[in-house]
Design a protein around this nucleic acid. Sequence first.
DNA 1: TTTATAAAGGATATAAATCTCTTTTAATAT
DNA 2: ATATTAAAAGAGATTTATATCCTTTATAAA
Lengths: 142, 142
Amino acid sequence: MIYTKTGEYAIRAILFLARQPKEALIMSSEIAEKEDIPTHYLAKILQRMAKYGYVDSFKGRGGGFKITELAKKSSILEIVERVEGPVINLKCVTGLKECDEENPCPLHEEWAELRNRIYNLISSRTVQEVAEQYTPTLQKAK
Amino acid sequence: MIYTKTGEYAIRAILFLARQPKEALIMSSEIAEKEDIPTHYLAKILQRMAKYGYVDSFKGRGGGFKITELAKKSSILEIVERVEGPVINLKCVTGLKECDEENPCPLHEEWAELRNRIYNLISSRTVQEVAEQYTPTLQKAK
DNA sequence: TTTATAAAGGATATAAATCTCTTTTAATAT
DNA sequence: ATATTAAAAGAGATTTATATCCTTTATAAA
């Protein structure tokens, strides 16, 4: 995985919520169980995502979380970066500090291309698109 | 960067040593200074790399480190994995636990391809090859 | 007014990164 | 020979960040 567990959990949770029926409220404990994420840690992540406007939270009996329109039209990259900070920095795979566009190390060009493709992969589709494309696959699985 | 600082420092140090004149002994403090790595931390990493046979160490006055033949013909990936454990795990960018070859998530195929290319990039060339190709670039820079 | 839920804030655990101090070793100067 | 010096080796203390857990409070519904 290219991001930390925090980012991974955030994405798992948001994609889970994106697959639920519209307007349904889901308890954090349910997400934790179904997606196999530590309960209390997930609660914190959801709390933060609520602040960022990616989920709406409802307290009290019958409460829970649902995904917002903002999150649906955000990319995976956007959400992960919001939750955990920059994903993959710009440094080259050799890590050489002298290495840049001016004085590229032997791996620089190809790495730059791959990095761009990774960025593109996780930023060119919305959460909703990913969730919608994935749902049929999951249904076949059962 | 796709690995931790430990792995990055290890590669920077080994590539630095690979660019030195044959048989020259370099002090860890010199590597630390030139490559901008915390002195004592680097010392530890070099210590471990000596155990793995990637560098030869010489104690006492006039001592220092030099790269071994083993390291010269190893890939960046091999050295990093030895020093810090597996690089990039197999999990998909969505992190979904249901996602696999059987039930690929929408990003699965492309991610698998990119992951393979990254592996290839850092495993198909030896440290010596990388160092040799880079030396002329660095000389032009001065 | 009881109960189920999220919010909030800490407390603890774990791991990575960094620094400190002592010991061992080898070369050099006396 | 012996003392001094310069280096790595090794043990471990500290710091920082991440991950995890726990306890209390606020809120809404029954």
